[in-house]
Computed example of a mutant assay.
Amino acid sequence: MRVFDIERQEWAGSRRERLFHTDQYLDVRRQKVVRQKTAIVLAVAGLTFGVWALAWKDEPEPYRAFTAARSDTPKETSDGPVDGSEDGAPPAQPSASLPAGYEPWQDAEGFRVALPTGWERDARSSQYGIDVIDYRSPDGTRRLQVFQLMETSPYESLQVAQVEAQKLDGYEALSLAEVTGGEEQAAEHEYRTDEIAGEQGGGTRHVIDHRFEAADGERYALVAYGSDADGPDDERELVDNALRWFCPPGTQCDTPAG
């Protein structure tokens, strides 16, 4: 039997219905309490979910092993043998036009030159152009130096260099002249000295300083150092082979004929 509930202002069901749906037949005050508790539970649940969601988003990504980027830039200096593995520049292809014991070498600075096999390479920065490159024999008694000239004339450059060379102990000039017969300008300064900058001992040194204009229109120097005791032939051979095979940076050059 349905009756009218004065407090709820609605028709209420029978007693059996009220037993199964007790919350619908609570008085107004109790209903308010129930609703307040329900709201509090829902609010706490929502807050808990929000904190969990934010914490989940802020978790770091799984660890990934770092892979270093590969660099193809050649090293500026090298102390190992001139075999192409130390300074990033592989040797050029061997040629029958070179004497026994020599090999062509493509330097990391971009130029090509010919050297005795097994020499070591060193480099230092220059005030102009390419780095100053030194190739040394394994025993340290011989050296070939390559660098770029600032002056506009090979002969003018040698005149400036001779002023400094004259200050060396035991300096003795053998020749200083322009080299004729070629298409480009060239000059050579040959001398003996008991003192070489950065080197000690070894007795009197024989030096051939050859400066020239290359195929790119720039000017370079090839300077050979060696002991004067064994004569001038080894320094002359060193300069001649290096000069014949020299190809400046950024230039395509043919293989010298035999």
Score class of each variant (00 low, 15 high):
residue 3 V to M: 01
residue 5 D to S: 13
residue 7 E to T: 09
residue 10 E to P: 01
residue 17 E to L: 15
residue 23 D to A: 11
residue 24 Q to H: 04
residue 26 L to Q: 12
residue 38 T to Q: 08
residue 38 T to S: 12
residue 44 V to C: 15
residue 45 A to N: 03
residue 48 T to M: 13
residue 51 V to H: 07
residue 56 W to M: 14
residue 58 D to E: 13
residue 59 E to N: 12
residue 62 P to C: 00
residue 63 Y to W: 14
residue 64 R to T: 07
residue 67 T to K: 13
residue 70 R to V: 14
residue 72 D to H: 09
residue 72 D to N: 08
residue 78 S to I: 01
residue 80 G to K: 13
residue 80 G to M: 10
residue 81 P to Y: 02
residue 87 D to Y: 01
residue 89 A to I: 07
residue 91 P to R: 06
residue 96 A to C: 03
residue 96 A to M: 11
residue 102 Y to K: 06
residue 112 R to M: 13
residue 114 A to D: 05
residue 115 L to M: 15
residue 116 P to H: 09
residue 118 G to S: 08
residue 119 W to D: 07
residue 125 S to K: 08
residue 127 Q to F: 05
residue 130 I to Q: 06
residue 131 D to L: 10
residue 133 I to W: 02
residue 140 G to N: 09
residue 147 F to S: 08
residue 157 S to F: 07
residue 158 L to R: 03
residue 168 L to M: 06
residue 169 D to Q: 07
residue 175 S to T: 14
residue 176 L to K: 07
residue 178 E to F: 04
residue 180 T to Y: 03
residue 180 T to M: 08
residue 189 H to L: 15
residue 190 E to I: 08
residue 191 Y to C: 00
residue 191 Y to I: 07
residue 191 Y to R: 00
residue 193 T to I: 06
residue 194 D to V: 05
residue 196 I to F: 02
residue 196 I to T: 12
residue 200 Q to G: 09
residue 203 G to M: 12
residue 205 R to N: 08
residue 206 H to W: 15
residue 207 V to P: 04
residue 208 I to C: 05
residue 209 D to N: 15
residue 212 F to E: 06
residue 216 D to N: 13
residue 220 Y to A: 00
residue 227 S to I: 06
residue 228 D to R: 04
residue 228 D to E: 13
residue 228 D to F: 01
residue 229 A to G: 00
residue 236 R to P: 06
residue 242 A to N: 06
